[in-house]
Every structure is written in C-alpha cells, then in structure tokens.
C-alpha cells in the first residue's frame, strides 16, 4: 500500500520535491501539497483501493503524511470488513 500511495503521490501530488526523498511521516503540506492536488490524490486513492472517503475523514489530518494516508485507507478497509 505504501508503495502505491507513493506512486500516486508522485503522479498527482505535483510536489516540488521528489517523493522518494520524503519520509513516511514528512508533512506533505509543508512539502508543497496544494488543496487542489490533495483532492486529485484523494480521487486517485479512491480509485486505486476501491474505497470512498467518508466525510469525517476528509480533513487535513487524514492527508498530512504518507503514513497518515495509509492509516486512513486502513481505517476504511477495516470498517468495511466489520460491516
């Protein structure tokens, strides 16, 4: 999952810094992730993992870092298993 997220971030994030140089917990907004690019990234992730972000997870924190995105997607997948 981490790799896929990094691949999408490289494609859609429009970051001035190469994604390989970012640590999992690096702040993506500080790295230059714009609000438009973050929406594109969300759409890409929804498509790649076949998930839909519920509204309560559509906030800055869920997309703050690669680790946060991974955690957010895991949360949705786990909730789906329970249901």
């Amino acid at each position: 999952m981490n790799e896929k997220i990094r691949e999408l971030l490289a494609k859609l994030g429009n970051l001035p810094t190469p994604v390989e140089t970012l640590a999992d917990d690096a702040d993506l907004y500080t790295a230059g992730l714009s609000s438009f690019a973050s929406v594109q990234l969300m759409l890409g992730i929804e498509d790649a993992f076949d998930v839909e972000f519920p509204d309560h997870l559509l906030n800055r924190k869920s997309f703050q870092s690669i680790a946060a995105i991974e955690n957010t997607v895991q949360q949705i997948l786990a909730a789906r298993k329970v249901a």
């Binding site: 609000s35 438009f36 929406v39 969300m42 759409l43 929804e46 972000f53 509204d55």
Partner: peptide, 13 residues
C-alpha cells in the same frame, strides 16, 4: 473553483 474541486470527493449533506 475551490468548492468544485472539493465536491469531487466531499458528499453534500
């Protein structure tokens, strides 16, 4: 423009 981009993922209540 900003709202329309958010509406691509945010579902209106």
């Amino acid at each position: 423009g900003n709202t329309s981009s958010m509406l691509l993922v945010h579902k209106q209540d």
